[in-house]
């Protein structure tokens, strides 16, 4: 099992066990992480599983998928260089200990 820590905009942290092969989105849903809605179910048709991945983990998560940036452009939350769609990040052993930050909802 791989540990992943989700941090809410208010700083509240929740560390969960992820299954290798699942997406980070699926991991979040399985553990009722607030702020991950995943409306399209991981088909990369929305941007409601948007999160920030810190630099130190960015390399290990692999490259963005084709079109991921285009979908992120439409996120209703603030997009930064650290932005990813969590449906496009597969859990691997290398991600053990990864920190995923959730965006604040734009007013």
């Amino acid at each position: 099992m791989v540990s992943i820590t989700f941090i809410q905009p208010d700083g509240a942290a929740q560390t969960v066990q992820a299954t290798v092969g699942d997406s980070v989105m699926q991991t979040a849903l399985n553990n009722n992480i607030e702020g991950i809605f995943a409306e399209c179910g991981g088909a990369m048709m929305c941007a409601t599983c948007h999160c920030y991945i810190d630099d130190e983990w960015a390399e290990k998560t692999g490259d963005k998928s084709d079109g991921e940036d285009d979908m992120l452009d439409c996120a209703e939350t603030e997009v930064t260089d650290a932005s990813r769609l969590t449906c496009q990040i597969k859990v691997t052993d290398a991600l053990d200990g990864m920190v995923v930050r959730l965006p604040s909802e734009l007013a």
Partner: peptide, 12 residues
């Protein structure tokens, strides 16, 4: 087909 950029431009 395989063109998220144009698709999202249209949706927006």
């Amino acid at each position: 087909i395989n063109n998220a950029k144009v698709h999202m431009t249209a949706r927006k």
